[in-house]
């Protein structure tokens, strides 16, 4: 029963990670791609760690630590990418049928 619950968490986490990957392919510009990559990977990785913790209760503290580092590292790195993209004038998508501009 616990094995099933753990595997379900891991499956759900990988669904979110898959959505992040699809987002990277489908989103129209750099900033929206960063958005998709930041949010979905954070929850996806967290759910996979929860699933692993259910499988191996002895790993719980180390897994919690990994989740903590993901929570801090993920937004910091996407902020660095987005900020430098903005500063170097990466064109931004404004919506279907509207011209791309530098803001």
């Amino acid at each position: 029963m616990t094995e099933l619950a753990g595997s379900l968490f891991i499956l759900l986490g990988s669904v979110f990670l898959f959505s992040a990957g699809l987002g990277l392919l489908r989103m129209p510009d750099a900033f929206t791609r960063i958005q998709a990559g930041t949010k979905a990977t954070t929850l996806g990785a967290t759910l996979i760690m929860v699933g692993l913790a259910i499988h191996h209760p002895g790993w719980t503290f180390k897994l919690l630590l990994i989740v903590y580092f993901v929570f801090v590292g993920n937004p910091v790195s996407s902020h660095a990418l987005a900020r430098s993209g903005h500063k170097t004038g990466t064109p931004m998508w404004r919506g279907r049928g509207r011209p791309e501009t530098r803001d």
């Binding site: 989103m27 929850l43 919506g95 509207r98």
Partner: peptide
């Protein structure tokens, strides 16, 4: 908010037409 964020991203990613108006 984080769960809402993920569902929001999924709604955009799986939409047949990506219909958003990004801005700063």
């Amino acid at each position: 908010e984080m769960v809402r964020a993920n569902l929001g991203v999924m709604r955009v990613v799986y939409a047949p037409r990506i219909d958003i108006r990004p801005g700063i």
